[in-house]
Design a binder for these strands. Structure first.
Length: 425
DNA sequence: TCTGGGGTCCTAGGACCC
DNA sequence: TCTGGGGTCCTAGGACCC
């Protein structure tokens, strides 16, 4: 049987680390990064974690602690994080022939058949990433992805390992005591709901799961649970995906800077979000045959009813044409709109995506081919203007008072992707 | 006052087919 | 009185991940 060797390279407090690279005085300070619209805390430095600021907590709930301890607050700056991520991923790619970029701050690597000292190989990687980008990372090594994840957790938690930990290097006894001290909810793939189910049948720790019966786990959690169980025992079930599968949908949604109730305001928000989605569509060379639009009111407000308006419309020919999609979304907003509600969030979903293939419409006439060709060239023209002049040509539906724009009160510069925002020294 | 955004996969149930 | 078996596709909701 093939013996796999997986490594998980994970950046430490990634968004916080990105901010620190360009503002070194933030080193060793408590700092948090907020989600879009400055809503929730989505990244914390270790110092902020020690203060008890939890992941995902709404900003307004921790404002007091933040003020009291002078915690530095940043709005999220995705152009910066995305660019730093691609630099880090590029370095990682030199260390193994098979890399899976799992998220903005994590890569899985696989090394089976390579006769190398993996631990020192990974120390070298860790150092190079730090030297070249300023981003600190930790590496976990194990025979399955679940174990590599677990090893990474250990590498982050215990500084004695200096950021690299190989879970296969410890004795069976130590592995068992490690699993015993591990809450099942901290195992990759076991979420809150599954943990609840398991705890109901008295499985609390990683070791409880390890020594449980596979058929019980499968009937309780389905095939996913079965896979996690097997991986915990060292049988690899989840492989590396070096080539990202083509995506199945593109979503562009935001919670609005202020609640919206006027039709024109909603239309502005949703058609602007449509433009974002079209950009993603084109950058992936995809086209869509299904457009969904949704808006809903604040689900957290207990004193007003929760309203969720939604419609999906199919298109007979796959398209990425903005002159078709933007007016279409505007029409859908017209159709689903209901007055006198305070809408809190909305978005656009392109589904049924197709790549490099355009299904012809059986019922289209020569004339409609002609008009399609016209709209295609019109879109191309608009696009070339917009790429030169910073999205200056817009559809009427995109214009308005901009009340929908998300808040971002504490934003740092886009140091690496905008000439006008370079670091000044 | 103030609660993110973007994904995937699985499952159950309904509609439909022969 | 007695009412099959096997399959697909779609959708909504749930669960998970970062």
């Amino acid at each position: 049987m093939a013996k796999y060797r997986f490594a998980l390279v994970d950046c430490n407090n990634f968004y916080v680390s990105c901010e620190r690279v360009f503002e070194p005085k933030l080193e060793r300070k408590a700092i948090v990064v907020l989600s879009n619209n400055d809503g929730c805390v989505i990244a914390r430095s270790n110092e902020a974690k020690i203060l008890g600021i939890k992941m995902g907590v709404p900003y307004f709930k921790v404002k007091e602690i933040i003020k009291r301890h002078s915690v530095v607050v940043k709005s999220s700056n995705y152009p910066l994080y995305g660019d730093m991520s691609s630099r880090v991923m590029n370095i990682i790619s030199k260390y193994s022939p098979s890399q899976e970029i799992y998220s903005i701050d994590e890569s899985f690597l696989e090394f089976s058949g390579m006769n190398i000292d993996l631990v020192s190989h990974m120390y070298k990687l860790k150092k190079q990433i730090k030297d070249w980008t300023g981003i600190p990372v930790c590496v976990g090594i194990g025979g399955t992805k679940v174990l590599a994840k677990l090893a990474n957790r250990i590498a982050k938690k215990y500084s004695t390992f200096d950021g690299v930990f190989d879970i296969d290097s410890i004795s069976n006894d130590r592995y068992i005591s490690l699993l015993s001290s591990l809450d099942i909810v901290d195992i990759w793939g076991i979420g809150r709901q599954s943990a609840k189910k398991l705890k109901n049948i008295n499985i609390h720790s990683g070791y409880d799961l390890y020594k449980s019966d596979i058929s019980v786990i499968e009937s309780l959690l389905g095939v996913n649970g079965k896979r996690i169980y097997q991986e915990l025992k060292g049988h690899s079930c989840i492989g590396i995906e070096s080539i990202p599968p083509t995506r199945k949908q593109i979503v562009s949604s935001r919670s609005f800077g202020s609640d919206l109730s006027a039709l024109a305001e909603l239309k502005q928000a949703l058609t602007s979000l449509t433009r974002v989605a079209i950009k993603k569509l084109k950058s992936n060379s995809l086209a869509t045959t299904s457009v969904s639009v949704f808006v809903y009111t604040n689900p957290h407000k207990k004193n007003t009813p929760f309203i969720h308006l939604y419609r999906n419309v199919g298109i007979s020919i796959a398209t990425d044409d903005e002159s078709l999609l933007i007016p279409m979304v505007a029409k859908i907003v017209d159709a689903i709109y209901k007055p006198k509600h305070n809408f809190y969030k909305g978005g656009v979903v392109f589904g049924s995506l197709v790549k490099d293939y355009r299904q012809q419409d059986l019922y289209s006439t020569d004339k409609s081919h002609q008009s399609k060709a016209n709209s295609q060239t019109k879109s191309e023209l608009l696009q070339s203007i917009n790429s030169r002049f910073n999205d200056s040509v817009k559809y009427a539906s995109e214009l308005g008072n901009d009340r929908w724009l998300p808040r971002a009160e504490f934003k740092s510069n886009r140091y690496t992707t905008e000439w006008s925002e370079l670091l000044n020294i």
